[in-house]
Simulated assay, not measured.
Amino acid sequence: MNNSIFFDDALLEKRIDIFYGYGNYQGKYWFIGMEEAGRGFKDVNHRINIWAKREEKEIDDVAEYHIDMGWPEGFQAGAPIQPTWKGLIRTVLTAKGQEILSKEDIRQYQIEELGREQKETCLLELLPLPSPSINDWIRNVECRNKTLHI
């Protein structure tokens, strides 16, 4: 890999070993995905640094984390509905007996409930690092002293 971004070795390894996702392990609804979406190495580095500033939690609050990452608009009035989360939210609301779902129902659940620390959902990831797409999957990461194979 010929990248200009180098990660803090210890912090990167710690993130890979410790971080599992967002929400509440005690939640009634669990969703397990491949990995978070990301925009490449610079984005991964930013996420890792935010995670470190947020006390390196095993599972975090999705809204608080994304607000700290610089995406507060996803959790404010009129938030754009995140496409992947939309399907998860529809599944939960349907399971809870809500037959007719409006965009506003989905938006409100995204803002207030999905992946929140003390709420009913748990969003876990099988792979430790965000990737831009399935075709651009991050498997090897260069650190200062070595390459990590994930």
Rank of each mutant, 00 (worst) to 15 (best):
V92W: 06
I111V: 10
I138H: 04
Q110M: 11
Y29C: 04
A52V: 03
Q98R: 14
G21N: 01
E55Y: 12
W71I: 05
I16L: 05
I32R: 14
T91A: 14
A77T: 01
Y22K: 00
I150P: 02
Q110D: 07
K14H: 11
I89W: 13
L93C: 10
G27M: 03
D9C: 05
Q118R: 15
H149Y: 10
G87M: 09
L148I: 15
K28P: 02
A77G: 00
G70N: 02
E58T: 15
I150E: 09
E73M: 07
L127V: 04
G74P: 00
R90S: 08
E112R: 07
I81P: 02
P128M: 09
F7A: 00
G97Y: 01
R144D: 04
I111K: 05
G33S: 15
Q26K: 12
G74L: 12
P130V: 13
I18F: 01
S133F: 10
F75N: 00
A52H: 13
Q76F: 00
E64N: 12
G40Q: 02
Q110I: 06
D43T: 02
E125S: 14
C122I: 12
R107P: 04
N2Y: 11
I59S: 03
R39T: 11
L114S: 04
L12I: 01
I111A: 10
Y25I: 09
L12H: 01
L93Y: 08
R15K: 12
C143L: 14
I50G: 06
D17S: 09
I134S: 15
T94M: 09
R139A: 10
D60E: 14
M69W: 04
W85G: 06
L129R: 07
I111F: 04
F41M: 14
R144F: 07
M1L: 13
E56Y: 06
L148K: 08
L93Q: 13
D9R: 09
K96P: 01
E73V: 04
G115E: 12
L148Q: 05
G87A: 12
P132W: 11
I59P: 02
F75H: 01
S4A: 07
W51L: 05
L93D: 08
K96G: 02
L124T: 10
L114F: 11
W51G: 04
I100C: 04
Q98E: 10
